[in-house]
Simulated assay, not measured.
Amino acid sequence: MPLAVLPFPRIDPVLVSIGPFAIRWYALAYIVGILLGWLYARALIRSARPWGGRAPLDVLDFDDFVVWVTVGIILGGRVGYVLFYNFEHFLADPLEIVKLWKGGMSFHGGFLGCVAAVVLFARSRGLSILTIGDLTCAVAPIGIFLGRLANFINGELWGRPADVPWAMVFPGAGPWPRHPSQLYEAGLEGLLLLAILAIAVRAGALKRPGLVIGLFACVYAVARSFCEFFREPDPQLGFLWGGLTMGMVLSVPLFLAGLGFVAAALSRPPLRPARAESP
């Protein structure tokens, strides 16, 4: 155990409370993440540079899509958590499924929810599924970053016992100093992934539909698997085969799917969108 540990900043998980209603940091992270992602996507659509001309969709199309993807994130994230992480608990008490304020969301489930929203929306509008997916993945790390910060504020999903100088004692996690793994995930799954995708977009990745999706899946899977070495497994699951965690196991098919998207995107010639119209 280190001689000294960093104090855990005890921030109230409830940001604002008005009577029986409360706004929590976790809910705020979702709201702000979706809002900032929406604004970033609108900026990409309006710019001719990432597409080499006019974007293959309008900002109004993406405005409508935000509602679809929000529902996909929430439903997919919750259903994923129920199925992947705590099925027996929710099977015994199904009413607990709708109590989102108690926490319990799965990234991999939320990702599948986003996929469903992308496919259904694109087909309903006659738009490219891959293009909508690319835009969604390009902005998604913003929400991931804010969500992991909210996990840290809530003092949940803490790391394994550690003797590093920045270890913290988390409330409810016993007396042992632990890795602040939520911050590791915020940095790698959020900021680093956002920077990599932004560089890819600037280099012309949006001209190859599906490439940003593939890069997102591959980089996230690697970052998440790395962070799992420092994150304490969910107590109801513990370690799986050979010391693997559920986060690692779910990241394997995500990584393989990402490789498939990258290979397919690079095998096709880049799009030649229509030139932006002159005023």
Rank of each mutant, 00 (worst) to 15 (best):
G76M: 01
V71E: 03
D93K: 13
C137K: 08
V98A: 15
F107Q: 05
L135P: 10
L100Q: 00
V98Y: 01
G76F: 00
R123I: 04
K99N: 04
G104Y: 04
I142C: 06
F65S: 03
G113I: 01
H89P: 00
E96R: 12
G126T: 07
V118T: 14
F107K: 12
N154Y: 09
L120Q: 04
F90E: 11
M105A: 00
L135G: 04
T70S: 15
A140D: 06
G104Q: 07
T70E: 07
I74D: 06
S106V: 11
D134A: 13
F152Y: 15
V67Y: 14
D134P: 13
V119Y: 10
G103R: 03
T131S: 12
E88F: 13
R78A: 10
R160Q: 14
F87C: 08
L146K: 05
R160E: 13
S128K: 10
F111C: 02
G159F: 07
E96Q: 14
R125C: 09
L149A: 04
I132C: 12
L100S: 01
F145D: 02
N151L: 11
F152L: 07
L130K: 15
F111W: 14
I74L: 15
I129K: 15
P141M: 07
F111T: 05
G110T: 08
L75I: 15
Y85V: 02
F121D: 01
L112A: 14
N86V: 03
D63R: 09
F65T: 02
I97P: 01
E96K: 11
R160G: 05
R160H: 08
V139W: 00
L130T: 13
M105V: 06
S106L: 10
G103I: 02
P94I: 06
I74F: 06
I144H: 13
G143R: 09
L95A: 09
V67D: 11
D134E: 14
I74K: 12
I73H: 00
A140W: 12
S124K: 12
V66N: 08
L127P: 11
D64H: 14
S106K: 09
A117S: 14
I144W: 03
M105Q: 05
C114V: 15
D93M: 05
A92H: 11
G143L: 11
P141A: 13
E96P: 00
K99G: 02
G155N: 11
A122M: 09
I73N: 02
A122E: 08
G147T: 10
E88R: 13
A150R: 06
L75Y: 03
W68L: 00
G143D: 05
K99F: 03
F111P: 01
A116F: 08
G76A: 09
G104C: 07
R125P: 08
R148P: 08
V115C: 09
I142E: 15
A138L: 13
P94K: 03
T70G: 15
G76W: 01
C137A: 15
L120T: 11
L149V: 11
V66F: 01
I129H: 08
V98P: 01
Y81I: 04
L146M: 08
